[in-house]
Simulated scan of single mutants.
Amino acid sequence: MLDLPTLSNNGITLKPLTLSYANDLAEACQDGELWKINETSVPEPDKVIDYINTAESMPDRKAFVVIDESTGKAIGSTSFHDILPFAKRLEIGYTWYAQSYWRTHVNTTCKLMLLTYIFETLEYQTVGWRADIGNRRSQEAIERLGAKKDGVIRGNRVCRDGVISDTAMYSLVNSEWPQVKAELTKKLNENY
């Protein structure tokens, strides 16, 4: 299975998620009361330790903590999951940031670092994303990255409220990466 690197760019660092970041993440998820969003995987503040332990115990998930270098604090998390080494495919998900970081350079920076690592270091062929069909904000964020919508899987997930929901699936393939990398780099240089 993959060993996670430490990645750093544009004032953001990604490191392997450990329990040492539990207090920061408990604070981050309260910024916007993110655990109340039905379609997300953000933990309740008092369940952050369980969230980290679950991430560490999943055999096909490798989780990062997202750190704002200006404060040294963890502001969210993201993961590689559904890792298929033989197919050279994985998904990026379980992504969340404190609400005050939404629509800033953070998501674009994180995805640029992760995609560069996946395509240029690991030499994987495909990266996937998924979002609840009702979570339009997440779908739009994935689309802004340059991913293509593959379709919808019907009835494959249960939301926090117990409702069974559909999942929108997206992907990016290696041949699309150079153009996407150029666009993400340009976006960061122009907007942030």
Rank of each mutant, 00 (worst) to 15 (best):
V127L: 14
V127M: 13
V127F: 10
G128L: 15
G128N: 12
G128D: 05
W129Y: 15
R130I: 00
R130D: 02
A131K: 02
A131P: 01
I133W: 04
I133K: 13
G134L: 14
G134R: 13
G134M: 05
G134K: 14
N135L: 08
R136A: 15
R136D: 13
R136L: 15
R137I: 13
R137W: 08
R137A: 14
S138P: 12
S138L: 07
S138G: 06
Q139F: 00
Q139G: 15
E140Y: 08
E140R: 09
E140C: 10
A141G: 09
A141F: 05
A141R: 02
A141V: 04
A141Q: 04
I142H: 02
I142F: 01
I142E: 03
I142D: 02
I142S: 01
E143M: 14
E143I: 09
E143G: 08
R144K: 15
L145G: 06
L145Y: 08
L145W: 05
G146Q: 07
G146S: 04
A147V: 01
A147E: 00
A147W: 03
K148D: 11
K148Q: 11
K148F: 10
K149C: 13
K149G: 05
K149Q: 13
K149H: 06
D150S: 07
G151D: 01
V152D: 04
V152K: 04
V152W: 04
V152T: 08
V152H: 09
V152M: 09
I153Q: 13
I153R: 12
I153P: 00
R154F: 11
R154P: 02
R154Q: 11
R154I: 00
G155I: 03
G155C: 12
G155T: 03
G155V: 00
G155S: 15
G155Y: 05
N156Q: 12
N156K: 07
R157W: 07
R157E: 01
R157I: 04
V158L: 10
V158K: 15
V158A: 09
V158F: 01
C159K: 15
C159Y: 00
R160F: 05
R160Q: 11
R160E: 02
D161G: 03
D161Y: 01
D161H: 05
G162H: 10
G162I: 02
G162M: 10
V163L: 11
V163I: 07
I164C: 08
I164R: 14
S165I: 04
S165V: 07
S165T: 14
S165H: 14
S165Y: 02
D166G: 10
D166V: 00
D166K: 00
D166Q: 03
D166P: 09
D166N: 12
T167H: 06
T167D: 04
T167N: 06
T167I: 10
T167R: 05
A168M: 10
A168P: 11
A168K: 06
A168G: 05
M169Q: 08
M169Y: 09
M169E: 10
Y170L: 07
Y170Q: 10
S171V: 05
S171P: 08
S171D: 04
L172T: 11
L172G: 07
L172E: 03
V173L: 13
V173M: 12
V173K: 10
V173W: 03
V173D: 10
V173Q: 13
N174E: 11
N174M: 12
N174F: 11
S175T: 11
S175H: 11
S175M: 07
S175L: 09
S175D: 09
S175I: 11
E176G: 08
E176R: 05
E176N: 02
E176V: 09
